[in-house]
Computed example of a mutant assay.
Amino acid sequence: MGFLDGLMGNASEVDVQKLEKEIGDLLVDGEEIESGYKVLRDSFIFTNKRLLLVDKQGMTGKKVEYHSIPYKSITHFSVETAGSFDMDSELKIWLSGTNEPIGKLFKKDSPIEEVQTTLATYVL
């Protein structure tokens, strides 16, 4: 991911093996990472059991909040692909009990369709 993309909030895919080294001790028995995406220092990771949001805080990023969302809590989601003049695609996820969605921007050439397929596999 380029520095400018990070500043603009665009997400890029992260290697699963790298994620396993970073958060492997947070996974439960039988849980496997399907895919993950990074926006600056923050990540959102799809496992076969949940969506895991990783929020690194502070100047050093040593303080980290891990937010686990069971797929059954996701009420609906939307994916907006980039057009001819759009610079990014957008993912929005609504959770039960909340009015505002979780939103992430993806670079125009990011695999947004794969993200949609992953969500559909576990949510539907």
Rank of each mutant, 00 (worst) to 15 (best):
M1W: 10
G2C: 08
G2V: 07
F3L: 06
F3G: 12
L4E: 13
L4P: 05
D5L: 10
G6H: 06
G9H: 00
A11T: 07
A11P: 11
S12L: 06
E13F: 06
V14R: 03
V14N: 03
V14T: 12
V14C: 06
Q17E: 08
K18V: 15
K18R: 08
L19M: 10
E20D: 07
K21R: 15
E22I: 05
E22V: 05
D25Q: 04
L27F: 00
V28Y: 10
D29Y: 07
G30E: 09
E31I: 01
E32V: 06
E34C: 08
S35G: 08
S35A: 10
G36I: 05
Y37K: 06
V39H: 12
V39R: 14
F44L: 05
F44G: 11
I45M: 06
F46M: 10
K49R: 14
K49P: 05
V54W: 03
G58K: 01
T60Q: 07
T60S: 15
G61W: 02
V64D: 02
E65R: 13
Y66Q: 03
S68I: 06
P70M: 12
P70A: 10
P70C: 05
K72T: 13
K72G: 05
K72M: 11
I74R: 02
T75F: 05
F77G: 01
V79D: 00
V79E: 00
V79S: 01
V79M: 01
E80I: 10
T81H: 14
G83I: 07
F85K: 13
D88S: 06
S89V: 00
E90D: 13
L91S: 00
I93K: 03
I93P: 03
W94G: 01
T98F: 15
E100H: 10
E100Q: 13
I102L: 15
L105A: 13
F106M: 09
I112S: 01
E113A: 05
E113V: 07
E114K: 10
E114M: 11
Q116A: 13
T118D: 08
T118Q: 09
Y122Q: 08
Y122D: 04
Y122N: 14
V123D: 02
L124Q: 15
